[in-house]
Computed example of a mutant assay.
Amino acid sequence: MKTVSLCGITMALTMALGCSNGPVGVAEEAEGFAMLQHNPSMLEASYQSGGSSVRAMLVESAPNVVEVTYDFGDPVIAFRIDYNQGEGHFMPNGNPLDAAQARLITPLLEGISKAVPEEEPARSRVENAAMRQTSFMQIVPLGEPLSPYRFVSERGWTHISCSCGSQNIGGYTRQAGRGCSCNGGSGNGCKGRCGQGCGITSTPACVGSTAYTQDCAKHDYGLGSFAAASDDYSFAGNNCSCSGVGTCS
């Protein structure tokens, strides 16, 4: 199996990170969100709170190939998303992600979402990857050793209905679809969405993607792994819209 090393990724990001020993310069920045660089081929943003920080760095290293790094100091979690080949690599390095670090991801995503076009077709490859991979970071397990793996879009995904109801989510029948109340009786709504669930903040419920798939629904119900949903988060087409979802609190 073809592998890509973390230092190989960070070589492409040398101007900002290199092989990281920690989030460069974040300690000097104020608490909260900061957009540090943003153009069609590069996006760099950070979020700092309560002594924890994360710096996201995305670079289009070749046409339709995006290198992505989330630098917490320890760990550093990287992706390589190759839209030409329809494949991605998940490359964690260091200790497991802890709860304080994981809490940084949602406000980081919300900050990025305000800086990029709302509609996916209007985004650059880097902007699209920033939204989708940061959404994916929300479901990376906490406190568990993480291993690198490869995922491919050619294995496909199965979209589910946008309308909330009892649905086949790949061997299981569960409530899934759009809506804050579409929560299967507990937890966040918008079950099956490959992105931020609705009902967890007062933010509009369409941050991330609007793809609803079986693997994302299985993950939402604890019936499938985050790794199995990787290709859905990164590549699945947006089959639903935000219409009728609204803002939840």
Rank of each mutant, 00 (worst) to 15 (best):
83 Y>P: 00
83 Y>K: 13
83 Y>Q: 13
84 N>T: 14
84 N>Y: 05
84 N>H: 08
85 Q>P: 03
85 Q>G: 15
88 G>F: 06
89 H>F: 15
90 F>H: 01
93 N>E: 14
95 N>L: 11
95 N>A: 14
96 P>A: 08
97 L>M: 10
97 L>W: 09
98 D>V: 13
99 A>M: 13
100 A>P: 01
100 A>M: 09
101 Q>I: 08
101 Q>H: 11
101 Q>T: 07
102 A>C: 05
102 A>F: 10
104 L>E: 04
106 T>L: 15
108 L>K: 02
108 L>I: 02
108 L>M: 12
109 L>K: 06
110 E>P: 00
112 I>N: 03
112 I>S: 01
112 I>T: 06
112 I>F: 10
112 I>G: 03
113 S>A: 15
117 P>M: 02
118 E>Q: 13
118 E>W: 02
118 E>A: 14
119 E>H: 12
122 A>F: 12
123 R>T: 05
124 S>V: 09
127 E>I: 10
128 N>Q: 14
130 A>R: 04
131 M>Q: 07
133 Q>Y: 11
134 T>C: 13
135 S>M: 04
135 S>K: 00
136 F>A: 06
137 M>Q: 11
137 M>N: 05
139 I>H: 00
140 V>N: 03
141 P>E: 11
142 L>I: 15
143 G>C: 08
145 P>Y: 08
146 L>Q: 11
146 L>R: 05
146 L>N: 05
150 R>L: 14
150 R>S: 15
151 F>R: 03
152 V>M: 14
153 S>H: 12
155 R>N: 15
155 R>P: 01
156 G>H: 10
156 G>F: 12
156 G>I: 09
156 G>K: 05
157 W>N: 02
157 W>M: 01
158 T>L: 07
159 H>D: 14
160 I>N: 00
162 C>L: 07
163 S>Q: 13
164 C>A: 11
167 Q>F: 04
167 Q>P: 06
169 I>D: 02
171 G>T: 05
171 G>W: 06
171 G>N: 05
173 T>W: 09
174 R>G: 00
174 R>D: 03
177 G>N: 00
179 G>M: 02
180 C>P: 10
180 C>W: 08
181 S>R: 06
182 C>K: 00
183 N>Q: 06
184 G>Q: 06
184 G>D: 07
186 S>K: 04
186 S>H: 10
188 N>V: 09
188 N>H: 08
189 G>L: 05
189 G>E: 04
189 G>F: 07
189 G>D: 08
189 G>A: 05
190 C>S: 14
191 K>F: 05
193 R>P: 03
194 C>R: 01
194 C>V: 07
195 G>P: 01
195 G>H: 00
198 C>H: 03
198 C>A: 10
199 G>N: 12
200 I>N: 15
201 T>G: 12
202 S>M: 13
202 S>Y: 15
203 T>C: 13
204 P>K: 05
204 P>R: 12
205 A>K: 00
206 C>F: 12
206 C>N: 13
207 V>T: 15
208 G>V: 02
211 A>C: 12
211 A>H: 03
213 T>H: 11
214 Q>I: 03
214 Q>Y: 06
216 C>S: 14
218 K>I: 00
218 K>H: 02
218 K>R: 14
218 K>M: 11
218 K>C: 03
219 H>L: 12
220 D>S: 10
220 D>W: 02
221 Y>P: 00
